[in-house]
Amino acid sequence: MTPVARLSPDEERDLVVAAELGDHEARRRLVEACLPAIVALAGTFRRTSRIERRELVQEGIAGLLLATRRFDPSLGTPFWAYASYWVRKAMQELVADLARPVALSDRAVRVLATVRAARADHLRQHGAEPTTEELSRSTGLPQAQIERLQAAERTPHSLEERVDQDGVAVATVGERIADPQAEWAFDDVLDDIEVGEVRALTDLLDDRERLVIRQHFGLDEPAQTLRGIATGLGVTAERVRQIEAGALAKLRASLARPAVAVPNET
C-alpha cells in the first residue's frame, strides 16, 4: 500500500507532474496524501534530545518535494517507492547534522566565550539581542562560525522532558507537539518551503514589462492583442511589441550569462 494508492497510476502521475510544475494545489494534495507515511517514517528515527518530530516531518516534506522534481514517471517506479528514499535521506541529514556529538575543542570554547561576551556587551548597550551579523562585526568571526557555535550550545529539550505549568508537571514536550496527522498545519511548512524556492522569471521584469507579458499571453487574465494593450498603456502597438521583445531578451540574458569575462570586453 502506498500513500497515494487510492489514486490510479495516471492520477498519481498527473498529480506529481503538476506538483513539479509548481501547481500549489497539486503540491498540497500530494503532501496531504503522503503526510501519514512521512510521519510514520519520522517515527522510525530514535528520539533524541536535539531533534523534534516536527523538524523531521518538515525535512521529510522538503525531501518529498525534491522527489517530485526528479521523479520520471516513464521509468515505471511508483512515486512513493521513489520518494520515500528522498524523504528518509532528508531526515537522516537532519539527524546527522543536529545529533552529532558536540565536543567543543579548547579553541572553540574560547571563541564561544568571545561570542558570549560580545552578546552581553550588545545587550547592555542596546537592550536587545544582537543579530548574527552584528556579532560577526563585533567579534571579527565569520557568521557561519558564530551560527555553528550557537547551535552547539543551544539548550536541548528532550521529548520526554516534563513541561511545568505553575510549578506542576502537566505534560512532556513530546505530548505538547501537535499530531501532524490530526491537526498540525503542514500548510505553513509547505508555504515556507515554497517561498524559499519559487522564484518566477517575471520577478526580473519591471512592472510595465510584466504587464505586457501577462496581458499578451493571457497569464492569469484574458489575453489581449498588442493593439489592446497599447490602448491601455497610451502607446503604439509597435512600442508594446518592443517592450515585449525587450522583456523576453532580458529573461533570456539572465539565463545565458557567461561565468568569466569575455576577452576584449569591459
Partner: peptide, 12 residues
Amino acid sequence: RMPSARVLDMLL
C-alpha cells in the same frame, strides 16, 4: 491550465 510561470518558461 499550465501555471503562469511555466507558460512563460515554455514560451522562452
